[in-house]
Amino acid sequence: MTDKPILTVENLTIDIPTGTGTLHAVRGIGFDLKPGETLGIVGESGSGKSLTSLALMGLLGRSIKTRATTMEFDGVDLLSASARAMRKLRGARMAMIFQEPMTSLNPAYTIGDQLMEAMTLHGNASKADARKRAIDLLQKVGITSAESRMTQYPHQLSGGLRQRVMIAMALMCGPDLIIADEPTTALDVTIQAQILRLLVDLQKEFGMAMILITHDLGVVARVADKVAVMYAGELVETGPTQAIFDAPSHPYTRGLLRCIPLPGKTERGTELGTIPGIVPSLVGDVSGCAFRTRCAHATPACRDAIPVHTAPGVRHSFRCISPTGFAEADDTPQSVEASV
């Protein structure tokens, strides 16, 4: 593992034009990733986490405006790269795994055809090589009787198997970066554990960097080396996984952790913590802290620029007007109207 990041993102902004104004879906986020490292991006729906991954892959539509100070993958500027250069990167060096394997596999082609296409399309690999690698990888992702699976169609496989095929497909060209967008959300718990286990093992074996996008704090805690908590298009807290879970500093991160029952910690049947309110609209001018509408500690100062503070732990930082993130105060909302 080198110390040089393979992916660097600084000040990434994504604006989507809508009928009623510009939707500022992602606002000035930045992170970097070294080979072999796993970054977990956690956020709720509408936080911009999936848009971020699509922007990295160059898969956003033309009408969507993507800007960044830096967005570099192994020395290639992803923003200025030609469509051709991006196609070469995608699949060959950066691969993506989606949430719903059924919609990302083409129902009209066999598993084998789709796996081999991923390689013959990019590389100079012969069909025979591609076939050999496809079978190898299917075995690697734990699929038994891989030879016969090659001739099957996606609908003949269960959800867990399809996700394994997706992983094998992502690995065909030996990518350096894998972006997994909610890879296990559609799966059962036992299969989720198996698939995550597989991803982690393969990542170690091939030394790939991985971005894991999820809403599930449990998944992030177990898999990621570092975490970026995203809220309404901003990174509100970033840092090593252990540090974030030990000392969550942003009120939103703390709120999220209180919302889920923690087996062994939360007393059964008691009230769970809540975050009142809803995610604000990001259409039009957005300034200050986007979480202020739901934060128990909000003050008028939250409407101004928000400084970034360093929290306990290496490279652990968060965005809040309070240098402690109000960690000492009571997070209980003053009064709650059910607006969710």
Partner: peptide, 8 residues
Amino acid sequence: KSVLTPDP
């Protein structure tokens, strides 16, 4: 065993 508690 499959339950992923948020324990890093």
